[in-house]
Amino acid sequence: MPMARSTTVTWSLSALAAGALLVGCSASASVGGSESKLSKDKLSATVAKKLAETTGQPEPDVTCPEDLAGKVGTETRCTLTAGDGSTLGVTATVTSVDGDQINFDIEADDKASPAAN
């Protein structure tokens, strides 16, 4: 029943996207040090944790390709990958910076991309 699993995974990603959009997901992280940027690894972990909290689902696999600069309006695109390889885009946008604390909004795309064959 591979089709059923694929449908379930797609539904889960769609539910995650809808949950993140409906709740208005925001997060913040301390960057530490003298540079005002959040490392891509810490950003990935923070986005995954916040999406899990918002949707009530387990932490998804999130990968962010670059650090997030601590400047209001800066954004980066991350990718949430499901077990079947389907993906969902997630945007992190800096809303404010308070010392070494970067506050940002998280918005998931409303549609998942199927796994590449």
Rank of each mutant, 00 (worst) to 15 (best):
M1S: 15
M1L: 15
P2V: 13
M3K: 07
M3C: 09
A4H: 09
V9H: 10
T10M: 03
W11C: 10
W11P: 03
W11R: 12
W11N: 14
W11Y: 13
S14H: 02
A15D: 09
L16H: 01
A17W: 04
A20F: 08
L22K: 12
C25A: 15
A29N: 08
A29Y: 11
G32W: 04
G32M: 06
G33E: 12
S34Q: 12
E35L: 08
K37G: 03
S39W: 12
S39L: 06
K49N: 15
A52Q: 12
T54Q: 08
T55F: 02
P58H: 07
P58E: 13
P60S: 05
P60H: 05
D61K: 06
E66Y: 00
E66R: 11
D67A: 07
D67R: 03
D67H: 02
D67Q: 04
L68R: 07
A69W: 08
G70W: 11
V72A: 04
T74N: 13
T79E: 03
L80W: 00
D84R: 06
D84N: 15
G85A: 11
T87E: 13
L88Q: 00
G89P: 00
V90G: 04
A92F: 01
T93E: 11
T93S: 07
T95W: 13
S96A: 11
V97T: 10
G99E: 11
I102K: 06
N103I: 04
A108V: 04
P114R: 00
A115P: 14
N117C: 09
N117R: 07
